[in-house]
Design a binder for these strands. Structure first.
Ligand SMILES: Nc1ccn([C@H]2C[C@H](O)[C@@H](COP(=O)(O)OP(=O)(O)OP(=O)(O)O)O2)c(=O)n1
Ligand SMILES: [Mg+2]
Length: 1157
DNA sequence: ATCCTCCCCTAC
DNA sequence: TAAGGTAGGGGAGGAT
């Protein structure tokens, strides 16, 4: 395994080397690039050493002033971290980029500190940057005390380590108390107080949570657990060893206790109180030496800087502020709004005509319209002087600032959207940076859509700056009006018309907005998009049928929509880099590597096929809110409070969408074990492990408070150190329309507003049954007044309590949310009567109810392990069942609140945390297989790096693929390759009645019978293990059947299908002809061949192949001169003509000219 | 087989 | 300094 792993790693590495990252600094998201932990650690170490060695070497003979000093910088400093680093190393010191728990720093350099009592940083040598500067200036090491950042208590600690020793002494559950005390007086706490937020009154709780004690070690530990030791190199082992030494005992006891205490508190309060008591941060037990700097302490230090505080979760206005500045948030919300708007417009317009109208199933004309460098173009309107210079839109010019949009001059340097400033500036030092102007983007977009809608086609919004327009009917109408029948097809005229429409639209938008848009035109969405690429910037391009294959073939696979890093990697592994390579790959291979859907989609894309219709927009299935930036907590309370706020936001969104849901998923990003406390990106999440956990409510809800409590419980169950949290998200699924617009018995209530879109008012009361919302009546009615009220995204609007939200009303006419309701088909009538009743209960009670376990209602408790495996969790009762501690009465146990259950479970039995179980499925991710050693969970995914696994087993997996293939019956059967016969079958299903009617009676019967028979065979074939056999079997079928034409198992396996395919078809023809040359071919067989060739032309788009087959057929027939058998020969000749005609028809269907034979 | 859950992946 | 959100498609694998 080792060698294979190595091999793969190498391959991945290689790929990465060539891969052009679009952004970041390569440190972060790049980890996926590493070939595994061993490699990862090795690289990290080497890298640091190299850097310092270089600095030292370049330093010349500077005095070793800092000899013996091990420095570390926290927060924003002047001079910068980089400069200080350099300065220290140059002068004989050692610099730590980050504290990783095993290294000690002698001095911590920072500009500011939190108020005295908050944390005992005084124990460290906290010095100002000036100490470094001045020491160098002085040519000697100045007393650090003169630069002490805080002047409180003496500094006795000589070293600082993260975690470490403290844990071992943790056994005593004393620390908690102390911790609490500190927390209470912390700067943050006082801040909260001053803001009126009730802080830690729970501090009285004697039980303190050690929740934050065992952070990073866990991850390390899990690594250690991995049975991959053999592959671990020495560095790795050494590291693990080291960590192990530090490994403290698990502090489960305290954890559980605290949790219970918290729970109790929670129940008593029930008020709008933010969250339960904050388990005070745990102060290090302060082992004599080497007091660890916990991540909470680190955060506190970091937040000492007021500016930091302002932009992180320490700011109570954080959510509102963050969302107002987040481009991605804006993008997402805009998109959702546009989707609603379009749906509404579509509904208003004509609900029916579409289906009928679009009969000419072939030839479509789709436009993809998109602004050129949207944000940048709009923002630059204020800076005309930069338009011709490389410019980007970003929040700042720091290294971690992300570029939302760059103009074309900047792109010439290789700058791309999404790239981090650091990289961009390396590529283009003269980059101009301009700020965002969200309102202006909205305005431009509004004008854009006005113009797009004016066109009159079917519109589908893709994003704020991008839309699809199906102008088929416009184009066809125009062509027809010019006197040519549609069916006749006058592609040329149509194409001209399409170009004209696009041209006019571009002009119009430019006029209205002053910005350029480009337009791509093609016969389907895929082609329109591909055309758009060629059109940019400020242009338009129409892909004509005859150039489709050439254009597509030359593209890299990543240029296809839906293919990016991961899928691109999988394809590269099978030697596919260009779209043309996909064409040379059998569909089986694609599906076995990528999955049935993805495989088929790409197979089609490669041939320019995309059947997706413009305008099809599915109903919303989830609502969520998450933040993965600026998350820096210094205690559990903050974290819980934040979760609460997030849930309020979620409530707002649910109301706005007019839905409620019964499934909640909490997503947590936690700093990875080996990740630095300060990631490369300012307040970014850095390298993280992510954990999801979901729970099911007994009944759908949209109550933020209720959801908040559940979410907090989940958070607690994870038992993460708050200081290590880097991202939090909450998502609700299993949605139901809020306004249960009369499920079944609606009729009776018609007297009321009747329709869904009526006034909300307190309808709830009236229809208790429908409103199975556990929210409090008061709240509910309130919300009902104007759900649309507050627009979470709109920057300017202060995010207030939902109550005040209504102020906002401007936004949308109630219709805004209508669409969703309307679309939300389902009228859920609680099948289980209870829910309705439950819904009436106050949240708290309801919660209990839900928590209890009528069955599957109780929230799941899965992470009983103090260190849940990252990402991957399983859920539900089953797991729970098995896991109920033996010494607990199941009933009692189940009745407990889920978080407590989690705690209990956590304290029982060997934690089953399997090591890093993140299993990358992507070949581009590290394929470290960290096989969960004893993965307690029998199931799970193989627990290994997906790729390796697949790659390795690929060969033998083939076997299994056979089975897999069978599963995907539907899919496979329609494969052109494997079975033209099947295609035929499929085709028959939609057999044209007219065609049937025209057949002679006997023939018709035969056709129908055969059709039926084949379907049967097809079906039964599914059960057969080996797909390939199906055809044979079928063919040899009953006498009634004529020859089955089982041509081209096209691209079979590895061989470049093409040839194999053709050869087989030829053989088939030979046999067919040989056996029936006397009486002539059976009409059915002829049809089969015709359909097959039609598909070759229309779908596979291999004109050469079609031509060759026909030529071959013709040759075979003509060559048959032996004895003039009249009838047979004549029939065969007719067959040739018939087949040719069929192919020509197919050509025409594609808008191509006649084929020359 | 099919459905369901829990992710991963992609797009803007 | 900086604002790394969010929804849907779909794959893997367990439950039914
Ligand atoms: N990683 C990204 C990608 C896009 N966007 C925003 C800014 C873009 O202006 C807008 C539209 O995205 P496009 O992909 O259409 O990119 P542009 O319009 O900037 O450039 P172009 O369409 O010319 O390629 O979305 C973003 O914030 N972050
Ligand atoms: Mg654009």
């Amino acid at each position: 395994m080792g060698s294979r792993l190595e091999k793969n790693s190498t391959a991945v590495r290689k790929r990465l080397e060539n891969h052009e990252f679009t952004g970041e600094d390569g440190e972060e998201y790049a980890p996926s690039a590493f070939g595994g932990f061993p490699d990862y650690f090795r690289r990290k170490k080497i890298k640091l050493q190299n850097v310092d060695a270089e600095i030292r070497a370049a330093a010349g003979d500077k005095p070793p002033i800092f000899k013996g000093v091990v420095g570390h910088v926290i927060g924003y400093t002047q001079p910068s971290l980089t400069d200080i680093h350099k300065a220290i190393v140059e002068h004989g010191g050692v610099f730590l980029q980050y504290l990783d728990g095993k290294t000690m720093a002698t001095h911590i350099i920072c500009s500011a500190l939190p108020p005295k009592k908050s944390l005992e940083f005084s124990k460290y040598r906290m010095v100002k940057p000036a100490w470094v500067v001045d020491s160098i200036k002085a040519g000697k090491l100045l007393p650090w005390a003169d630069y002490k950042v805080i002047d409180e208590g003496g500094a006795r600690q000589k070293t600082i380590r993260l975690d470490g020793g403290k844990m071992s002494s943790q056994a005593t559950q004393q620390p908690p108390l102390r911790y609490r005390e500190q927390t209470q007086n912390s700067f943050y706490t006082s801040q909260l107080r001053s803001m009126g937020t009730s802080p830690a009154q729970g501090s009285s709780s004697p039980l303190v949570t050690p929740r934050l004690n065992k952070p990073r070690l866990q991850a390390v530990e899990s690594i250690e657990d991995d049975p991959m030791d053999e592959d671990i190199d020495d560095d790795m082992m050494a590291l693990v060893e080291e960590e192990r030494q530090l490994e403290p005992g698990r502090a489960q006891e305290p954890a559980r206790a605290s949790s219970m205490a918290l729970e109790a508190t929670e129940e008593t309060e029930e008020g709008p109180t933010p969250a339960a008591q904050p388990p005070p941060p745990d102060p290090p037990v302060a082992p004599k030496e080497g007091k660890p700097l916990t991540s909470e302490e680190h955060n506190a230090l970091l937040l000492a800087d007021p500016r930091m505080r302002k932009s992180s979760t320490a700011n109570p206005e954080f959510l509102k502020q963050y969302y107002s500045e987040s481009r991605l948030h804006h993008l997402s919300t805009w998109k959702a709004e546009l989707k609603s708007k379009m749906q509404r417009l579509a509904a208003e317009r004509g609900p029916a005509p579409k289906g009928v109208k679009r009969k000419p199933g072939l030839r479509r004309y789709i436009m993809h319209v998109d602004f050129d460098s949207f944000f940048c173009a709009v923002s630059l309107k204020k800076y005309p002087e930069f338009v011709d210079k490389p410019a980007v839109v970003a929040h700042g010019s720091g290294s971690g600032s992300e570029i939302a949009s760059c103009n074309y001059p900047a792109r010439k340097f290789g700058v791309k959207n999404g790239m981090w400033m650091k990289r961009a500036q390396e590529l283009c030092p003269d980059l101009k940076v301009v700020g965002y102007d969200f309102p202006a983007y909205e305005e431009a977009s509004a004008l854009f859509y006005d113009a797009v809608l004016e066109v009159g086609g079917v519109v589908q919004s893709v994003s704020i700056d991008e839309a699809l327009v199906d102008i088929t009917s416009l184009v066809l109408d125009a062509a027809v009006s010019k006197g040519v029948g549609v069916s006749e097809g006058s592609p040329w005229r149509e194409q001209e018309k399409a170009d004209e429409i696009a041209s006019r639209l571009r002009e119009r938008i430019k006029e209205k907005t002053g910005c350029n848009v480009s337009v791509g035109i093609g016969g389907n969405i895929l082609l329109a998009k591909v055309a758009l690429r060629k059109a940019k910037p400020a242009g338009q391009y129409q892909i004509r049928p005859e150039e489709v294959l050439d254009i597509l073939g030359a593209l890299k696979v990543e240029d296809l929509p839906g293919v990016a890093y991961s899928i691109g990697g999988k394809l590269e592994e099978i030697g596919v880099k260009l779209v043309s390579n996909i064409r040379q790959t059998s569909k089986e291979r694609l599906t076995s590597v990528l999955g049935p859907k993805t495989g088929e989609k790409l197979w089609e894309y490669a041939r320019g096929i995309d059947k997706t219709e413009v305008g099809e927009q599915p109903v919303r299935k989830s609502v969520s809110a998450e933040v993965n930036w600026g998350i820096r907590f210094i205690n559990q309370q903050e974290a819980e409070e934040f979760v609460g706020n997030l849930c309020k936001e979620l409530e707002r969104r649910l109301l706005n969408e007019g839905v409620k849901g019964k499934h909640l998923t909490v997503k947590i990003m936690r700093r990875a074990a080996d990740a630095p406390l300060d990631p490369p990106k300012h307040l970014g999440h850095g390298e993280c492990d992510t954990f999801n956990k979901s729970i099911v409510f007994g009944v759908a809800t949209n109550n933020g408070e209720f959801i908040g409590k559940e979410a907090v419980a989940v958070l607690r169950a994870f038992n993460f150190s708050p200081g290590d949290l880097r991202g939090i998200g909450v998502q609700v699924t299993k949605l139901e329309p809020l306004k249960a617009s009369a499920p079944e018995g609606s009729q009776k209530r018609l007297n009321f507003g009747s329709f869904a879109a009526h006034t909300p008012a307190k309808k709830q009361r009236t229809e208790p049954i429908e409103e199975g919302t556990p929210e409090k009546p008061k709240t509910a009615s309130h919300h009902e007044v104007d759900p649309i009220a507050d627009d979470p995204l709109t920057p300017r609007k202060p995010k207030v309590h939902p109550a005040l939200a209504l102020a906002k009303a401007n936004e949308a006419d109630a219709s805004a949310r209508t669409p969703l309701n309307v679309t939300g088909t389902q009228f859920i009538m609680p099948s289980n009567a209870d829910p309705a009743v439950i819904a009436e209960l106050p949240p708290d009670i309801n919660r209990h109810f839900v928590t209890k376990p009528p069955e599957n209602n109780f929230p799941d408790v899965k992470s009983r392990d103090p260190t849940p495996a990252p990402v991957k969790s399983r859920t539900q009762s089953p797991a729970l069942q098995d896991e109920i501690p033996a010494d607990f009465d199941p009933e009692v146990f189940l009745a407990l609140p889920e978080d407590i259950k989690a705690e209990i479970l956590a304290s029982h039995g060997p934690s089953r945390s399997r090591g890093q179980s993140v299993l990358p499925q992507s070949p581009r991710k590290d394929r470290i297989l960290q096989p969960p050693k004893r993965a307690p969970t029998p199931t799970k995914r193989g627990g290994r790096g997906g790729k390796i696994h697949s790659l390795f087993n690929r060969a033998k997996a083939k076997q299994q693929d056979a089975n897999a293939g069978l599963h995907q019956t539907n899919f496979l059967t329609r494969d052109t390759k494997r079975a033209p016969v099947d295609q035929e079958i499929e085709a028959l299903e939609e057999i044209d009645p007219t065609f049937l009617a025209e057949l002679p009676e006997d023939v018709r019967k035969e056709v129908v019978a055969d059709h039926r028979r084949r379907r049967m065979a097809q079906r039964s074939g599914l059960l057969a293990p080996v797909p390939s056999r199906q055809e044979n079997k079928r063919r040899s079928g009953t006498g009634e059947t004529k020859l089955k034409f089982p041509p081209p198992p096209p691209k079979v396996g590895l061989s470049g299908s093409g040839l194999t395919d053709l050869t087989e078809v030829k053989d088939m023809i030979n046999a067919w002809h040989r056996e029936t040359k006397a009486e002539g071919p059976h009409v059915d067989d002829v049809r089969v061949l015709e359909k097959y060739l039609a598909r070759v032309v229309v779908e596979e788009r291999d004109m050469e192949k079609a031509k060759k087959v026909i030529r071959w057929l013709e040759w075979v027939v003509d060559a048959d001169e032996d004895e003039d058998e009249g009838r047979g020969k004549e029939a065969w000749s007719e067959t040739v003509e018939s087949v040719k005609a069929a192919v020509q028809a197919a050509m025409a269907e594609r808008g191509l000219g006649k084929m020359e034979f």
